[in-house]
Amino acid sequence: MKTPASTAPLQPAAPEILPPRKTKQLAGWLVLIAVLIVCSIRTKVTPYQLITGLPQMGSLLREMFPPDWSYLPTIWAPMMETVQIAILGTTLGGLLAIPVALLSASNLQVSRWISLPCRMILNLVRTIPDLLFAAIFVAVFGIGPFAGMLALVFFSFGIIAKLTFEAIEAIDPGPLEAMTAVGANRMQIIRFGVVPQALPYFMSYLLYTFEVNIRAAAVLGLVGAGGIGLLLDRALGLFRYDRASIIILLTLVIVLVIDYGSTIIRRKLL
């Protein structure tokens, strides 16, 4: 047990910690600047373009104002469709994520033959961007909100499953052990040991993904996957910038309202 403090051996002297070298920092900055310059030259993305583009930016902004308020009733339905796509996509993706997150977590004694493939699927899904999913599903199921919804299901599934399985791996193992000692089976251990600890995190990730999905759903229409993006695409194609601006404004308001609400709920959860 505890040794009296007076006889405790002294810690071996720790190696002296030196402040980082200034030259190293300087070298780091120089490398960063060099990389920026090389990238800028190779892609021909230079401040020059920004300056020559500015006048056009001005004229575009002038055309955007005043927004075409009379267009508002027309875009309300597609906007709601966008929100509905996001709700469905997030919810279904989140539901799919639950079993996969549980099977991926390394602290729930799932056989490696199951947990490793699950984690591989997760990593694979997460490398594919939402717009690519949308483009694929538009090709398979045709133009419309179904393809967009499906894209968000996969996209949400990837995010939520990954974050949740990491949250599960970080839970306190004590209650799991207590439930094992009580004679609970695997499902009961999960229900009483894991779920109460991981649920607030899962809900928080679900809401966070919903926020991301609202924004994603707004541009899905660009590849034909339904929602408000379709109208934005059309307005831009017809050079109706006054209409484009009202679409952007409405999207902004909806996104802000949802972000605000979800942030408040998330703060309460954790």
């Binding site: 004590g174 209650p175 207590a178 094992t180 000692a181 009580v182 004679g183 009483f192 600890q197």
Partner: peptide, 16 residues
């Protein structure tokens, strides 16, 4: 196990 109760140093309750 159902017949054996166990008490831990760190209580191991479901805190929430």
């Amino acid at each position: 196990r159902r017949d054996i109760g166990m008490i831990f140093q760190s209580f191991n309750l479901i805190k929430r």
